[in-house]
Amino acid sequence: MSHRFADLTSPQAAALRERTPVLLLPVGAVEPHGPHAPLDTDPLISAGMCQRAADRLADDPVVTVKILPALSYGVTEFGSAFAGAVGISATTLGSLVVEICSSLAAQGFTRVVVVNNHFEPAHVGALRAAVKTLADKGIRTGYLDLLRRAAVARLTEEFQSGSCHAGRYETSLVLADRPELVDTDTMAALPALRVDMPAAMGAGTTGFVEMGMVDAYCGAPAEATAAEGRETFESLTALLVEAIHDQVR
């Protein structure tokens, strides 16, 4: 059985409301991820988490999980100096999330979890604000915020370091799901590059090049492996399953 909400017919969608549906909204951004990883890295990770969580809960006696069409465009100002960055404004992103979740709630689909893997401050801020706006409207929307301390502590050392854009962490996840999209020869030749992205962002830096990421990556992509990606997906999926269960409590 497909886990995709959009694969349902209209009568099937109506029948879904008779169960306890939780809908997952994968979010990301189309932006540069070094010279080796695809522009679609962030949406790919979000979609991979959603698929794994839906698989894990396929036989759950209480909850029925469906995956909404992905919202793949986000705020991409940091990567705008590179080809392939396709950005929308924070206002547009926030409005899209509010309107999508409001439309679903009006039809009786009141349990939605936003699953995001793009961490540009304005992008994350827009998602957090959208969830608050929905709450103010009486629509309780889940948001799996991977930047919260408790979530960060369950992920890899590179992710915790903050030097992880298109590095070992993200590249491993792509290798686990879509290895054919990684230029492994280029990946293997990339030197490790330490950039404290949270500190740079906090200091007001607004672009990869300004941070010293002249090839749109930091971290250690050459150390990436599919095995690590599979392990990390396990951790991410566990976090998402917990967020799903929070929606039905």
Rank of each mutant, 00 (worst) to 15 (best):
V27D: 13
V27T: 08
V27M: 07
A29N: 12
A29C: 05
A29D: 15
V30E: 13
E31F: 09
E31G: 08
E31I: 00
E31V: 00
E31M: 05
E31R: 04
P32T: 00
P32K: 01
P32I: 00
P32W: 03
P32L: 02
P32Q: 02
P32V: 00
H33G: 07
H33E: 12
H33F: 07
G34Q: 03
G34A: 03
G34E: 07
P35W: 04
P35F: 03
P35K: 00
P35I: 03
P35S: 01
H36P: 12
A37V: 00
A37R: 00
A37F: 08
A37N: 09
A37T: 01
P38K: 00
P38E: 03
P38H: 01
L39S: 06
L39A: 05
L39P: 15
D40Y: 10
D40G: 08
D40L: 04
D40C: 05
T41N: 10
T41V: 01
T41F: 10
T41H: 05
T41Y: 10
D42T: 01
D42H: 05
D42I: 00
D42G: 03
D42Q: 06
D42F: 03
P43G: 02
P43M: 04
P43D: 13
L44D: 10
L44I: 11
L44Q: 05
I45S: 04
I45F: 04
I45H: 03
I45N: 06
I45T: 05
I45L: 05
S46P: 02
A47I: 13
A47W: 12
A47H: 08
G48D: 14
G48I: 14
G48R: 04
M49V: 14
M49W: 14
M49Q: 15
M49Y: 15
M49K: 07
Q51C: 14
Q51I: 15
Q51W: 15
R52V: 06
R52P: 02
R52A: 14
A53P: 14
A53C: 11
A53D: 15
A53M: 08
A53K: 05
A53I: 10
A54T: 12
A54S: 12
D55K: 08
D55G: 08
D55M: 10
R56V: 08
R56M: 06
R56W: 12
R56L: 06
L57C: 11
L57W: 15
L57K: 13
A58G: 04
A58R: 02
A58I: 03
A58F: 03
D59L: 02
D59S: 02
D59T: 07
D60C: 02
D60W: 04
P61G: 06
P61V: 01
V62S: 11
V62T: 11
V62L: 06
V62I: 06
V62E: 13
V62R: 13
V63C: 11
V63A: 07
V63R: 14
V63L: 09
T64Y: 09
T64S: 12
V65W: 13
V65T: 15
V65E: 15
V65I: 10
K66R: 14
K66S: 12
K66G: 12
